[in-house]
Protein backbone atom coordinates (compact mmCIF):
# COMPACT_ATOMS: atom_id res chain seq x y z
CA UNK A 1 0.00 0.00 0.00
CA UNK A 2 2.31 2.75 -1.20
CA UNK A 3 -0.34 5.33 -1.96
CA UNK A 4 -0.71 6.71 1.55
CA UNK A 5 -0.68 10.49 1.80
CA UNK A 6 2.20 11.58 4.00
CA UNK A 7 0.35 13.22 6.81
CA UNK A 8 -1.82 10.14 7.27
CA UNK A 9 1.11 8.16 8.64
CA UNK A 10 2.45 8.43 12.13
CA UNK A 11 5.84 10.08 12.11
CA UNK A 12 7.93 7.03 12.79
CA UNK A 13 6.14 4.52 10.59
CA UNK A 14 8.17 5.28 7.50
CA UNK A 15 11.39 4.82 9.43
CA UNK A 16 10.12 1.59 10.91
CA UNK A 17 9.13 0.34 7.51
CA UNK A 18 12.47 1.18 5.97
CA UNK A 19 14.29 -0.60 8.70
CA UNK A 20 12.31 -3.74 8.26
CA UNK A 21 11.66 -4.40 4.57
CA UNK A 22 12.38 -7.95 3.70
CA UNK A 23 11.71 -9.22 7.19
CA UNK A 24 8.74 -11.41 7.95
CA UNK A 25 5.59 -9.45 8.69
CA UNK A 26 4.98 -11.24 11.98
CA UNK A 27 7.26 -13.40 14.04
CA UNK A 28 6.44 -15.28 17.20
CA UNK A 29 9.39 -16.75 19.04
CA UNK A 30 8.70 -19.23 21.83
CA UNK A 31 5.54 -17.36 22.80
CA UNK A 32 3.67 -18.65 25.82
CA UNK A 33 0.58 -17.29 27.47
CA UNK A 34 -1.33 -18.50 30.49
CA UNK A 35 -4.59 -17.37 32.02
CA UNK A 36 -4.10 -18.16 35.66
CA UNK A 37 -3.12 -21.80 35.76
CA UNK A 38 -4.27 -22.62 32.27
CA UNK A 39 -1.57 -22.57 29.61
CA UNK A 40 -3.24 -21.25 26.48
CA UNK A 41 -0.26 -20.80 24.19
CA UNK A 42 2.64 -23.20 24.51
CA UNK A 43 5.99 -21.93 23.29
CA UNK A 44 4.69 -21.06 19.84
CA UNK A 45 7.07 -20.37 17.01
CA UNK A 46 5.60 -18.82 13.92
CA UNK A 47 6.72 -16.61 11.07
CA UNK A 48 4.35 -15.03 8.61
CA UNK A 49 5.59 -13.35 5.48
CA UNK A 50 4.42 -10.19 3.82
CA UNK A 51 1.25 -10.61 1.77
CA UNK A 52 0.84 -14.11 3.12
CA UNK A 53 -2.67 -15.28 3.99
CA UNK A 54 -2.64 -17.69 6.89
CA UNK A 55 -5.79 -19.44 8.05
CA UNK A 56 -5.87 -20.87 11.55
CA UNK A 57 -8.31 -23.62 12.38
CA UNK A 58 -8.91 -25.51 15.57
CA UNK A 59 -11.42 -26.29 18.25
CA UNK A 60 -12.51 -23.85 20.94
CA UNK A 61 -9.90 -23.44 23.61
CA UNK A 62 -7.12 -24.26 21.17
CA UNK A 63 -5.63 -20.80 21.60
CA UNK A 64 -6.33 -19.39 18.17
CA UNK A 65 -8.15 -16.27 19.38
CA UNK A 66 -5.51 -15.72 22.03
CA UNK A 67 -2.87 -15.93 19.33
CA UNK A 68 -4.51 -13.10 17.41
CA UNK A 69 -5.08 -11.05 20.53
CA UNK A 70 -1.43 -11.33 21.54
CA UNK A 71 -0.30 -10.20 18.11
CA UNK A 72 -2.70 -7.27 18.29
CA UNK A 73 -1.42 -6.35 21.74
CA UNK A 74 -4.72 -7.01 23.51
CA UNK A 75 -3.11 -9.69 25.65
CA UNK A 76 0.34 -9.67 27.18
CA UNK A 77 2.47 -12.73 26.63
CA UNK A 78 4.18 -14.42 29.51
CA UNK A 79 7.21 -15.71 27.66
CA UNK A 80 8.90 -15.24 24.33
CA UNK A 81 8.88 -12.44 21.84
CA UNK A 82 6.56 -11.07 19.19
CA UNK A 83 8.03 -9.03 16.37
CA UNK A 84 6.18 -7.08 13.74
CA UNK A 85 8.20 -6.33 10.61
CA UNK A 86 11.31 -7.10 12.53
CA UNK A 87 10.62 -4.79 15.46
CA UNK A 88 9.85 -6.41 18.81
CA UNK A 89 6.50 -5.32 20.18
CA UNK A 90 6.26 -7.68 23.12
CA UNK A 91 9.01 -9.40 25.00
CA UNK A 92 8.64 -11.37 28.18
CA UNK A 93 10.62 -13.80 30.23
CA UNK A 94 8.79 -15.93 32.70
CA UNK A 95 11.69 -15.85 35.11
CA UNK A 96 11.49 -12.12 35.36
CA UNK A 97 8.11 -10.52 35.95
CA UNK A 98 8.41 -8.03 33.15
CA UNK A 99 5.47 -8.03 30.81
CA UNK A 100 4.32 -5.23 28.69
CA UNK A 101 4.12 -3.66 25.33
CA UNK A 102 7.37 -2.15 24.21
CA UNK A 103 7.35 1.46 23.14
CA UNK A 104 7.50 0.49 19.49
CA UNK A 105 4.18 -1.23 19.96
CA UNK A 106 2.40 2.10 20.07
CA UNK A 107 3.40 2.98 16.53
CA UNK A 108 3.04 -0.49 15.20
CA UNK A 109 -0.41 -0.87 16.69
CA UNK A 110 -1.55 1.10 13.68
CA UNK A 111 0.12 -1.33 11.31
CA UNK A 112 -2.10 -4.10 12.60
CA UNK A 113 -5.85 -4.00 12.07
CA UNK A 114 -8.28 -6.40 13.69
CA UNK A 115 -11.85 -7.42 13.04
CA UNK A 116 -13.83 -9.19 15.74
CA UNK A 117 -16.48 -11.86 15.85
CA UNK A 118 -19.03 -9.51 17.37
CA UNK A 119 -18.16 -6.51 15.19
CA UNK A 120 -17.67 -4.09 18.12
CA UNK A 121 -18.97 -1.14 16.16
CA UNK A 122 -19.64 2.00 18.18
CA UNK A 123 -23.45 2.01 18.48
CA UNK A 124 -23.81 5.74 19.01
CA UNK A 125 -22.07 6.60 15.73
CA UNK A 126 -23.01 6.23 12.09
CA UNK A 127 -21.04 3.96 9.78
CA UNK A 128 -19.04 6.87 8.47
CA UNK A 129 -18.35 8.20 11.97
CA UNK A 130 -17.22 4.74 13.06
CA UNK A 131 -14.74 4.55 10.21
CA UNK A 132 -13.56 8.14 10.57
CA UNK A 133 -13.08 8.22 14.34
CA UNK A 134 -9.57 6.79 14.49
CA UNK A 135 -8.52 8.89 11.53
CA UNK A 136 -9.51 12.02 13.39
CA UNK A 137 -8.20 11.07 16.81
CA UNK A 138 -5.10 9.06 16.03
CA UNK A 139 -4.00 10.37 12.64
CA UNK A 140 -5.32 13.84 13.55
CA UNK A 141 -6.99 14.27 10.22
CA UNK A 142 -9.33 17.21 9.86
CA UNK A 143 -12.99 16.23 10.02
CA UNK A 144 -13.73 16.80 6.32
CA UNK A 145 -10.82 14.73 5.13
CA UNK A 146 -11.50 11.92 7.57
CA UNK A 147 -15.08 11.83 6.38
CA UNK A 148 -13.96 11.59 2.77
CA UNK A 149 -11.54 8.76 3.49
CA UNK A 150 -14.25 7.01 5.49
CA UNK A 151 -16.67 7.24 2.60
CA UNK A 152 -14.08 5.82 0.24
CA UNK A 153 -13.49 2.92 2.61
CA UNK A 154 -17.19 2.22 2.85
CA UNK A 155 -17.39 2.23 -0.95
CA UNK A 156 -14.64 -0.32 -0.97
CA UNK A 157 -16.76 -2.72 1.07
CA UNK A 158 -19.82 -1.90 -1.04
CA UNK A 159 -21.57 0.10 1.68
CA UNK A 160 -21.19 3.61 0.32
CA UNK A 161 -24.90 4.37 0.48
CA UNK A 162 -25.09 3.29 4.13
CA UNK A 163 -22.68 5.85 5.44
CA UNK A 164 -25.28 7.60 7.60
CA UNK A 165 -26.81 4.43 9.01
CA UNK A 166 -26.39 3.45 12.64
CA UNK A 167 -25.18 -0.06 13.47
CA UNK A 168 -28.58 -1.14 14.74
CA UNK A 169 -30.01 -0.31 11.33
CA UNK A 170 -27.60 -2.64 9.56
CA UNK A 171 -27.59 -6.37 9.08
CA UNK A 172 -24.83 -8.46 10.63
CA UNK A 173 -23.01 -8.80 7.35
CA UNK A 174 -23.18 -5.06 6.77
CA UNK A 175 -21.96 -4.32 10.29
CA UNK A 176 -19.02 -6.63 9.82
CA UNK A 177 -18.14 -4.97 6.54
CA UNK A 178 -18.23 -1.59 8.28
CA UNK A 179 -15.90 -3.06 10.89
CA UNK A 180 -13.54 -4.15 8.12
CA UNK A 181 -13.72 -0.70 6.54
CA UNK A 182 -12.96 0.84 9.93
CA UNK A 183 -9.87 -1.29 10.32
CA UNK A 184 -8.75 -0.68 6.74
CA UNK A 185 -9.09 3.09 7.08
CA UNK A 186 -5.93 3.12 9.14
CA UNK A 187 -4.05 1.52 6.24
CA UNK A 188 -2.67 -1.38 8.22
CA UNK A 189 -0.17 -3.71 6.64
CA UNK A 190 -1.50 -6.66 8.57
CA UNK A 191 -5.12 -7.61 9.16
CA UNK A 192 -6.28 -10.05 11.80
CA UNK A 193 -9.71 -11.67 11.50
CA UNK A 194 -11.08 -13.42 14.58
CA UNK A 195 -13.94 -15.70 13.49
CA UNK A 196 -15.55 -12.77 11.77
CA UNK A 197 -18.32 -14.79 10.18
CA UNK A 198 -19.16 -17.06 13.10
CA UNK A 199 -21.85 -14.75 14.46
CA UNK A 200 -23.50 -14.21 11.11
CA UNK A 201 -26.54 -15.83 9.58
CA UNK A 202 -25.34 -18.15 6.81
CA UNK A 203 -26.70 -16.04 3.97
CA UNK A 204 -24.72 -13.02 5.18
CA UNK A 205 -21.38 -14.81 5.36
CA UNK A 206 -20.68 -14.61 1.65
CA UNK A 207 -20.59 -10.83 1.42
CA UNK A 208 -17.97 -10.65 4.17
CA UNK A 209 -15.82 -13.40 2.70
CA UNK A 210 -15.96 -11.61 -0.63
CA UNK A 211 -14.37 -8.53 0.91
CA UNK A 212 -11.73 -10.67 2.56
CA UNK A 213 -10.91 -12.47 -0.68
CA UNK A 214 -10.46 -9.12 -2.36
CA UNK A 215 -8.09 -7.99 0.36
CA UNK A 216 -6.07 -11.14 -0.11
CA UNK A 217 -5.68 -10.59 -3.83
CA UNK A 218 -4.59 -7.03 -3.12
CA UNK A 219 -1.65 -8.37 -1.18
CA UNK A 220 -2.71 -7.79 2.42
CA UNK A 221 -0.95 -9.86 5.04
CA UNK A 222 -3.79 -11.67 6.78
CA UNK A 223 -4.26 -14.07 9.63
CA UNK A 224 -7.75 -15.49 9.58
CA UNK A 225 -9.23 -17.62 12.32
CA UNK A 226 -12.26 -19.24 10.80
CA UNK A 227 -14.40 -22.32 10.38
CA UNK A 228 -15.06 -21.49 6.73
CA UNK A 229 -13.15 -24.28 5.06
CA UNK A 230 -14.11 -23.23 1.56
CA UNK A 231 -12.52 -19.87 2.12
CA UNK A 232 -9.43 -21.50 3.57
CA UNK A 233 -8.98 -23.79 0.61
CA UNK A 234 -9.45 -21.00 -1.92
CA UNK A 235 -7.58 -18.16 -0.36
CA UNK A 236 -5.06 -19.40 2.17
CA UNK A 237 -1.38 -19.68 1.39
CA UNK A 238 -0.95 -21.71 4.54
CA UNK A 239 -3.26 -23.40 7.01
CA UNK A 240 -2.38 -23.93 10.65
CA UNK A 241 -4.20 -26.39 12.83
CA UNK A 242 -4.02 -25.52 16.52
CA UNK A 243 -4.87 -27.70 19.44
CA UNK A 244 -4.30 -27.05 23.14
CA UNK A 245 -2.10 -24.07 22.58
CA UNK A 246 0.26 -25.52 20.00
CA UNK A 247 0.43 -25.62 16.23
CA UNK A 248 -0.10 -29.29 15.56
CA UNK A 249 0.09 -29.21 11.82
CA UNK A 250 0.84 -26.59 9.23
CA UNK A 251 0.96 -26.61 5.46
CA UNK A 252 -0.64 -26.14 2.15
CA UNK A 253 -4.45 -25.93 2.32
CA UNK A 254 -4.87 -28.81 -0.09
CA UNK A 255 -2.46 -30.93 1.88
CA UNK A 256 -4.13 -30.25 5.19
CA UNK A 257 -7.68 -30.77 4.03
CA UNK A 258 -7.11 -33.70 1.70
CA UNK A 259 -4.34 -35.57 3.49
CA UNK A 260 -3.91 -34.43 7.08
CA UNK A 261 -0.93 -36.07 8.69
CA UNK A 262 -1.75 -35.82 12.32
CA UNK A 263 -4.46 -37.86 14.01
CA UNK A 264 -5.75 -34.84 15.89
CA UNK A 265 -6.03 -32.88 12.67
CA UNK A 266 -7.95 -35.70 11.06
CA UNK A 267 -10.25 -35.97 14.06
CA UNK A 268 -10.98 -32.25 14.04
CA UNK A 269 -11.65 -32.10 10.32
CA UNK A 270 -13.93 -35.08 10.31
CA UNK A 271 -15.95 -33.64 13.19
CA UNK A 272 -16.22 -30.38 11.35
CA UNK A 273 -17.15 -31.83 7.99
CA UNK A 274 -19.81 -34.16 9.26
CA UNK A 275 -21.97 -31.15 10.28
Amino acid sequence: MSDRPDHAEPAGAAAVRERSTGRPAIELVRVSKAFGQRLVLRSLDLAIGEAEVVVVIGGSGSGKSTLLRCIAGLELIDDGEIRIEGTPVQRAASRRRNRGLLRAAGLLRQEVGMVFQHFNLFPHMTARQNVALALRLVRRMPRQEAGAVAEAMLQRVALGSYRDAYPDQLSGGQQQRVAIARALAMHPRIMLFDEVTSALDPELVGEVLKVMRQLATEGMTMIVVTHEMGFARDVADRVLFMDQGAIVEAGDPEAIFVAPQHTRTRAFLSRLLER
Binding site: A72, G73, L74, G106, R109, Q110, V112, G113, M114, F116, H118, F119, N120, L121, F122, L133, A134, L137, V138, A179, R182, A183, M186
Partner: peptide, 11 residues
Protein backbone atom coordinates in the same frame (compact mmCIF):
# COMPACT_ATOMS: atom_id res chain seq x y z
CA UNK B 1 -15.37 -5.58 22.89
CA UNK B 2 -15.73 -1.82 22.69
CA UNK B 3 -12.46 -1.34 24.53
CA UNK B 4 -10.78 -3.96 22.35
CA UNK B 5 -11.92 -2.13 19.25
CA UNK B 6 -10.62 1.25 20.44
CA UNK B 7 -7.32 -0.35 21.41
CA UNK B 8 -6.63 -1.93 18.04
CA UNK B 9 -7.57 1.30 16.31
CA UNK B 10 -4.86 3.07 18.28
CA UNK B 11 -6.98 5.33 20.49
Amino acid sequence: GQRDATFVLGL
